[in-house]
Each structure stands twice: as C-alpha cells, then as structure tokens.
Amino acid sequence: MHFTPVCLLLSCLRLSPDRTQFFKHESLSLTCDNQLNSTSHWRVKRKTAEGGVRQCGSGWGSAFSGSGCTIGSTYPSDSGVYWCESTESERSNTINITITGGSVILVSPALPVMEGDSVTMQCRPETNTSLDFYKDGLPMGRGAVAQVTIHSVSKSDEGFYKCVILGSGESAESWLSVKASLSLPPAAFSYTVTRMMYPIVVWAPFLLSTIILGLIIRDRKKAQTDAERRGSDEVVMDIVV
C-alpha cells in the first residue's frame, strides 16, 4: 500500500501489521509513538464489548518497552476500540480492530491516509476465488485479483469498505479515513510568509538603531574612562618630578 499515514497528535497509536482486520489466532502489536517526546507516560488501552475499558496487561495482552502491547493469539473477544492514554489522561487516536472467525478479511490501512496518495486494499480469503469489492454497500467491481487500488485518493473516497467472496462469505467493514493535504496553495503560502516577515520588517530598524546607540554610548564611556586615567597618571608624574 503506497500511502502516507497521518497522525498529528501528542501520541500516535500504531498497529503492526498495518490493518484493522485479523483472523482468529493471529498476532498483533500496538505501540504508542510519542510525537513530541513529552515526559508523559503512555499506555495502550482498549474498550471491548465483553471486557469494558482495560489497560494492556490487565487481563489482556503483554506490555513491552513501557508503551507497547502485543497480543500473541487473537480472539473475536479482542475486537474493539484501542488507544493510547497518558498518566495525565491525554489520549491518542483510536483504532477499531476486528477479529473474525470467518473465512475472509479486508486488509486496509489502520491510520488515515493523505489526500493524493495511492492506496491498495487487499481481500484475504482462505482460497482463491472470484471476489467482489464494495464501498458503502455498493459494488465496485469483480475479479480474480484479491485487491483494489485507488489512485490519488480524495475525501470522496472516504467510507466503509468490505470485500465479498462469492459462495464463501464476506469481510467485515473497515473505515478508510482520508485527510486533506498539509501543503499550502501558493497564495496561502505567500500570505503566511508575508505575515511572518511583517514583524521582522517593522522591528528590525528599531532593533538596529538600539544596537548602534548602545555601541556609541559604550565607546563614549570607554573614551571618557581612558581620558580620566591618563589625567590621573599625569598628576602623579608631576608630583614625583
């Protein structure tokens, strides 16, 4: 999948493998990525239908490296919403993970993707058969290749996706999130640079004048001090002679 994952929070929850659907008995790991190197201590938490809200290591998963968590063998009861939470109750992004006991899953990115990137979603069946892809309940196409690629994704591509294996079953739905590009248009960039430069242009002459005035005062004081010292030496010499 050729895409740029987007996460612009204090801490970013990352999932490996990078997909939101898993077969039963697969393994996965979750990591709290400290974006700003804050001093907060982050832990992986989840909310499931059966277990409620629990921290990694409290009846599920195994904590590692302080802010990471791994599930060695997944079960449908592990399906739920996962996130990172700090000791100060700050929260990261959330990831909705689905564990299925069925015969097919949809492999799609766990994090939002950037507008303009290309995204490939794969349908992973137990056997190779004819496949159907759906977006928001509407068919997108059929084929023997178990994947679909969206070139240059946009906000209009955002939605719930699933795939269907004829005669076998279908995957659960996964939400594809698309974020707007962070790049500014030329006009906006020019406006932003102008606003940034305005205080510098306004205050630069004042700062420069202040520095020059300070140097002049310093030099005058130094010259006055040197003159006073020379006068004192001449008086001493006159007394000795």
Results as ranks from 00 to 15, higher is better:
69 C>H: 05
82 Y>E: 07
86 S>C: 00
83 W>T: 08
80 G>P: 03
72 G>E: 14
93 N>Y: 09
87 T>C: 08
97 I>R: 08
76 P>M: 05
81 V>P: 01
94 T>Q: 13
80 G>K: 03
81 V>T: 11
92 S>T: 09
75 Y>M: 01
97 I>H: 07
84 C>W: 08
75 Y>R: 00
82 Y>V: 03
93 N>L: 02
78 D>C: 11
76 P>T: 06
74 T>A: 11
87 T>N: 15
71 I>Q: 06
78 D>R: 00
90 E>A: 15
95 I>N: 05
97 I>S: 06
94 T>E: 15
98 T>Y: 08
97 I>F: 03
80 G>H: 08
82 Y>R: 01
83 W>K: 01
80 G>M: 06
87 T>Y: 08
85 E>C: 10
91 R>M: 14
81 V>F: 11
86 S>W: 01
72 G>R: 00
76 P>C: 11
98 T>W: 02
70 T>E: 15
80 G>A: 08
85 E>M: 05
74 T>C: 09
70 T>M: 13
89 S>K: 13
101 G>F: 15
99 I>H: 01
94 T>W: 09
70 T>Q: 13
69 C>F: 03
87 T>L: 10
101 G>M: 14
90 E>D: 15
93 N>H: 01
79 S>R: 06
97 I>K: 08
97 I>C: 00
86 S>I: 04
91 R>L: 14
98 T>I: 10
82 Y>G: 05
72 G>V: 04
100 T>W: 02
91 R>W: 12
95 I>K: 08
75 Y>N: 04
82 Y>L: 05
84 C>E: 06
88 E>F: 00
88 E>Q: 12
73 S>K: 09
98 T>F: 06
100 T>G: 08
75 Y>I: 01
92 S>M: 04
98 T>E: 12
85 E>Y: 03
101 G>A: 15
84 C>A: 10
71 I>Y: 02
98 T>N: 11
98 T>Q: 15
89 S>Q: 14
73 S>N: 02
86 S>V: 07
90 E>G: 12
79 S>G: 03
101 G>L: 15
84 C>N: 00
78 D>M: 09
101 G>K: 14
84 C>P: 06
97 I>Y: 00
90 E>R: 12
96 N>P: 02
71 I>K: 05
87 T>R: 00
75 Y>T: 01
81 V>L: 13
88 E>H: 06
92 S>I: 06
70 T>K: 12
82 Y>W: 02
101 G>I: 12
83 W>P: 03
93 N>W: 08
76 P>E: 09
97 I>Q: 11
78 D>T: 10
78 D>E: 11
76 P>V: 04
90 E>K: 12
87 T>Q: 12
86 S>A: 02
90 E>F: 15
81 V>S: 11
94 T>R: 09
73 S>H: 02
92 S>E: 03
74 T>F: 01
87 T>I: 00
72 G>H: 10
86 S>T: 03
71 I>N: 01
86 S>P: 04
95 I>V: 14
100 T>N: 01
78 D>H: 11
77 S>G: 05
87 T>V: 02
88 E>C: 04
99 I>P: 07
87 T>H: 13
